[in-house]
Protein backbone atom coordinates (compact mmCIF):
# COMPACT_ATOMS: atom_id res chain seq x y z
CA UNK A 1 0.00 0.00 0.00
CA UNK A 2 1.45 3.30 -1.09
CA UNK A 3 0.84 6.42 0.96
CA UNK A 4 2.56 9.68 0.11
CA UNK A 5 2.56 12.41 2.73
CA UNK A 6 3.20 16.04 1.92
CA UNK A 7 4.36 18.23 4.74
CA UNK A 8 3.71 21.38 2.80
CA UNK A 9 0.13 20.51 1.90
CA UNK A 10 -2.70 22.58 3.33
CA UNK A 11 -4.50 19.40 4.34
CA UNK A 12 -3.69 17.92 7.72
CA UNK A 13 -1.61 14.76 7.59
CA UNK A 14 -4.29 12.52 9.06
CA UNK A 15 -6.61 13.67 6.27
CA UNK A 16 -4.02 12.86 3.63
CA UNK A 17 -3.76 9.35 5.05
CA UNK A 18 -7.52 9.05 5.29
CA UNK A 19 -8.05 10.08 1.69
CA UNK A 20 -5.37 7.79 0.33
CA UNK A 21 -6.44 4.69 2.25
CA UNK A 22 -10.03 5.41 1.26
CA UNK A 23 -8.95 5.57 -2.36
CA UNK A 24 -7.11 2.26 -2.03
CA UNK A 25 -10.26 0.71 -0.60
CA UNK A 26 -12.59 2.18 -3.20
CA UNK A 27 -10.35 1.08 -6.06
CA UNK A 28 -10.24 -2.39 -4.54
CA UNK A 29 -6.49 -2.21 -4.15
CA UNK A 30 -7.20 -3.03 -0.54
CA UNK A 31 -9.74 -5.80 -0.42
CA UNK A 32 -12.41 -6.52 2.12
CA UNK A 33 -11.06 -8.36 5.13
CA UNK A 34 -7.47 -7.37 4.38
CA UNK A 35 -5.48 -6.24 7.39
CA UNK A 36 -4.15 -2.71 7.51
CA UNK A 37 -0.73 -2.10 9.03
CA UNK A 38 -0.97 -1.37 12.76
CA UNK A 39 -1.28 2.29 13.69
CA UNK A 40 2.11 2.22 15.34
CA UNK A 41 3.81 0.48 12.43
CA UNK A 42 2.32 2.92 9.93
CA UNK A 43 3.39 5.87 12.08
CA UNK A 44 6.95 4.57 12.10
CA UNK A 45 6.95 3.89 8.35
CA UNK A 46 5.63 7.33 7.51
CA UNK A 47 7.81 8.99 10.18
CA UNK A 48 4.85 10.69 11.81
CA UNK A 49 3.26 10.51 15.23
CA UNK A 50 1.07 7.63 16.35
CA UNK A 51 -1.80 9.93 17.18
CA UNK A 52 -1.95 11.08 13.57
CA UNK A 53 -2.41 7.57 12.20
CA UNK A 54 -4.80 6.88 15.05
CA UNK A 55 -6.94 9.83 13.99
CA UNK A 56 -6.90 8.69 10.34
CA UNK A 57 -7.97 5.16 11.33
CA UNK A 58 -10.70 6.55 13.56
CA UNK A 59 -12.10 8.56 10.67
CA UNK A 60 -11.95 5.53 8.38
CA UNK A 61 -13.75 3.47 10.97
CA UNK A 62 -16.35 6.14 11.58
CA UNK A 63 -17.18 6.21 7.89
CA UNK A 64 -17.42 2.45 7.64
CA UNK A 65 -14.34 1.78 5.54
CA UNK A 66 -12.55 -0.27 8.13
CA UNK A 67 -13.29 -2.04 11.40
CA UNK A 68 -11.03 -2.79 14.35
CA UNK A 69 -10.74 -5.81 16.58
CA UNK A 70 -9.07 -5.15 19.90
CA UNK A 71 -5.71 -6.86 20.05
CA UNK A 72 -5.84 -7.91 16.41
CA UNK A 73 -5.77 -4.71 14.41
CA UNK A 74 -7.79 -2.99 11.70
CA UNK A 75 -9.33 -4.60 8.66
CA UNK A 76 -11.02 -3.38 5.49
CA UNK A 77 -14.80 -3.58 5.74
CA UNK A 78 -17.03 -5.39 3.31
CA UNK A 79 -18.04 -2.81 0.70
CA UNK A 80 -21.20 -3.39 -1.24
CA UNK A 81 -21.04 -2.03 -4.77
CA UNK A 82 -24.15 -0.04 -4.14
CA UNK A 83 -22.54 1.65 -1.11
CA UNK A 84 -19.51 2.58 -3.10
CA UNK A 85 -21.57 3.88 -5.97
CA UNK A 86 -23.74 5.89 -3.67
CA UNK A 87 -20.76 7.40 -1.96
CA UNK A 88 -19.06 8.20 -5.24
CA UNK A 89 -22.22 9.79 -6.61
CA UNK A 90 -22.30 12.07 -3.62
CA UNK A 91 -18.76 13.17 -4.27
CA UNK A 92 -19.51 13.81 -7.92
CA UNK A 93 -22.54 15.85 -6.96
CA UNK A 94 -20.46 18.00 -4.63
CA UNK A 95 -17.79 18.58 -7.21
CA UNK A 96 -20.32 19.52 -9.86
CA UNK A 97 -21.96 21.92 -7.43
CA UNK A 98 -18.73 23.76 -6.91
CA UNK A 99 -18.17 23.86 -10.67
CA UNK A 100 -21.61 25.42 -11.06
CA UNK A 101 -20.86 27.94 -8.35
CA UNK A 102 -17.67 28.98 -10.06
CA UNK A 103 -19.43 29.19 -13.41
CA UNK A 104 -22.10 31.48 -12.04
CA UNK A 105 -19.46 33.74 -10.54
CA UNK A 106 -18.03 34.55 -13.93
CA UNK A 107 -21.30 34.28 -15.83
CA UNK A 108 -20.79 30.99 -17.67
CA UNK A 109 -24.12 29.74 -19.04
CA UNK A 110 -25.45 26.22 -18.52
CA UNK A 111 -25.12 25.37 -22.20
CA UNK A 112 -21.51 26.48 -22.22
CA UNK A 113 -20.81 24.45 -19.09
CA UNK A 114 -22.47 21.36 -20.56
CA UNK A 115 -20.40 21.75 -23.65
CA UNK A 116 -17.24 21.98 -21.56
CA UNK A 117 -18.23 18.90 -19.58
CA UNK A 118 -18.88 16.88 -22.70
CA UNK A 119 -15.57 17.95 -24.14
CA UNK A 120 -13.64 17.05 -21.00
CA UNK A 121 -15.48 13.76 -20.56
CA UNK A 122 -14.53 12.64 -24.06
CA UNK A 123 -10.94 13.81 -23.65
CA UNK A 124 -10.46 11.71 -20.50
CA UNK A 125 -11.38 8.42 -22.15
Amino acid sequence: MQIIISNTSKDPIYEQIYVQIKKHILTNELQAGEALPSMRQLAKDLDISVITTKRAYEELEKNGFIYSIVGKGSFVSEQSNEMIRERKMKVIEEQLLSAIENSKEIGVELAELQELLTLLYKEET
Partner: peptide
Amino acid sequence: DRIADYITFIHNGQHIFTKEHY
Protein backbone atom coordinates in the same frame (compact mmCIF):
# COMPACT_ATOMS: atom_id res chain seq x y z
CA ASP B 1 6.51 17.01 13.93
CA ARG B 2 7.92 13.56 13.28
CA ILE B 3 7.24 11.92 16.60
CA ALA B 4 5.16 13.86 19.11
CA ASP B 5 1.57 12.80 19.71
CA TYR B 6 0.89 15.46 22.27
CA ILE B 7 2.46 18.86 22.72
CA THR B 8 2.71 20.38 26.16
CA PHE B 9 3.53 24.04 26.09
CA ILE B 10 4.49 26.02 29.16
CA HIS B 11 5.35 29.66 29.59
CA ASN B 12 6.53 31.46 32.72
CA GLY B 13 5.70 28.53 34.95
CA GLN B 14 2.21 28.23 33.53
CA HIS B 15 0.79 25.35 31.60
CA ILE B 16 -0.55 26.98 28.44
CA PHE B 17 -1.84 23.80 26.83
CA THR B 18 -1.49 20.10 26.19
CA LYS B 19 -3.02 19.18 22.87
CA GLU B 20 -2.96 16.46 20.29
CA HIS B 21 -0.39 17.53 17.78
CA TYR B 22 -2.86 17.77 14.87
